[in-house]
Computed example of a mutant assay.
Amino acid sequence: MEVSESVFGELDGMVIKSYAVKTKSGMEFTCIDYGCIITNILMPDKTGIKESVVLGFDTLEEYERNSHYFGSIIGRVSGRIEKAEFTLDGNTYKLAKNENGNHLHGGPNGFHRAVWDSSLENSLDEAHITFTYTSPDGEEGFPGELKIEVTYTVNESNELIISYRGVSNKTTLVNLTNHSYFNLSGNLKRDILSHELILKSDRFLVLDSSFIPTGRVEFVENTAFDFRESKKLGMGIDSSEQQIELVGGGYDHPFLLNINNQEEICLFDRESGRKLEMETDQPCVVIYSGNSLQGDIDIRGKKAQKHLGVCLETQIPPNMISNPSFATAKLAANEIYESRTKYAFKVMQDK
């Protein structure tokens, strides 16, 4: 295993570090300590050609200009909080508004915009890149000083494990995720409509017109949301179901997972032969099919386009702050927040 550290850029007088890990079996992984952004993951296809399988940029300036959260850690709370406010233990907190009067992905200066402290440790078959950040009491409106640690572990099995840990001195909300966009075709040769997904989920959450979960649960059977058996993303996206059309033609929905830590999420591209298997201890995954990936954005030589990548955001169901039917983002003072998701990159075996 080869590991290295370099300078990616400079922001407000602070040096932004980049970390690179290369496994003997062909995976290359890079990340930076601005937003804990995963800048690139390279994987071989079925013929051995190594190409990028995530959306990202090569310069800090591009990440600063871009608003799509490529590869970043999202917090304090991922997803949308209705009307940018919540009540906790009898106190009402007003949050930063950054999407139609709502609070999205931690606010305009959420964790994706923070410069984290970082360190690298490695052994013969594993590398650990650890990021730490202290979010001050009141940042973006959230109560409590929150100390967060995120670790990216890359091993010789071509696995990426993201571990999250946090503690606050006041009761607050925490719901972290990673916002990488995956495209297994390699170097963005095709969109993700022909990618196939298997998801061990019987239920999804219905969204309102602001894309916020209402708390209503629907079963996936006989809908475009049924991925219990392999199905192309495009088959669902092409449907005329109201929830698909609501979000601009695609998915931006929380799926409730039936099981945990048992390869409950699988994405693959038959043409390239690349496969991503995921497992998590979180109760939910938000599938976002890149419905808003448009505009004058150049992504390593490829113009942004709708459905160019798909996000698989493992987390607590968004906007569920006090709903007793769901796990909530409430974190009591001095309680430990922990979460873990594993991404295993593989090559499909011909049958």
Rank of each mutant, 00 (worst) to 15 (best):
K342R: 15
G290V: 12
H307W: 15
L95A: 11
C311Y: 04
L256S: 07
E241M: 11
D191T: 13
V53Y: 10
S240N: 14
I129S: 11
E64R: 13
E145R: 02
C266P: 00
H253N: 13
V3W: 05
N175R: 02
Y34N: 10
I316W: 06
E99A: 03
Y152S: 08
I38H: 05
F255G: 03
I336R: 02
P317N: 10
G48C: 08
F111I: 08
T314H: 08
Y164W: 12
S180G: 03
V174G: 02
S118A: 15
K231V: 11
H103Q: 12
I161P: 00
V115W: 05
L60T: 13
R190M: 01
P213H: 04
G106H: 06
A304F: 10
T59M: 05
V310Q: 07
S52D: 14
S230V: 01
T39E: 04
D89A: 14
E338D: 12
L55I: 13
S4W: 05
T341N: 02
V167K: 05
K83Y: 04
F142N: 06
K351T: 02
H112Q: 14
R300V: 01
S240L: 15
E126W: 00
L184Q: 08
I287R: 00
T130A: 09
D202I: 00
G75Q: 11
H103A: 13
K147H: 13
L267G: 09
I162Y: 00
T223R: 01
R228S: 13
L207P: 02
G48F: 14
N66G: 03
L312M: 15
I41Q: 02
P283G: 04
M348H: 00
V220L: 01
G273D: 12
E156P: 00
V7W: 07
S168C: 14
I336K: 10
G301N: 12
E62W: 00
I244K: 01
A332H: 06
Y337H: 08
Q294P: 00
N158C: 13
I16M: 05
E2Q: 14
L308P: 00
S240Q: 14
R300H: 09
K231P: 05
I336C: 12
I244V: 11
S168V: 14
E335K: 11
I237K: 01
S6W: 10
I74R: 04
Y133M: 03
M348R: 07
L11I: 07
I41C: 03
I237Q: 06
P108Q: 09
F268Q: 09
N155W: 12
K97E: 15
L160R: 07
E221N: 08
G35L: 03
L104Y: 10
V3Y: 08
L104W: 07
V310Y: 05
N183G: 06
K24R: 11
D269H: 13
G249Q: 12
Q349H: 08
N178S: 13
I74F: 11
D33N: 15
S322G: 05
Q294A: 01
S325M: 08
E139M: 07
D226V: 02
S168Y: 05
E64P: 00
L257E: 10
